[in-house]
Amino acid sequence: MNAVIHINEKDNLVTCLRPIAKGETIEFEGKHYTASADIPKFHKMAVAEIKKGEHCYKYGEVIGAATTDLHPGDYVHVHNLESTRGRGDKHTKE
């Protein structure tokens, strides 16, 4: 079984199929990625440079925007990826 699954070629995130330890290097599609943090099973890792505010892709579709600059190997989850939908909190501030 592969360590990660890259669902769509457009995706800048992959899903880890097993826990990946910080510092561990994994190889897929001919490239190497070193995890910058512990990544739990079925959580996501960046496989491209993603600037703050840019879209993150999974299934070939937008699943949210980066809240900080992301680098290949970064653990991507609620701490650095936010939804762009249903954000009543943002509407009231604007």
Partner: peptide, 22 residues
Amino acid sequence: GEDLRSGQPTPGNKEGGLSTIE
């Protein structure tokens, strides 16, 4: 005036690895 994220995804969804409603 609420962030949908307060209810969706649920805490369990997030713990499992889902980050956003999308």
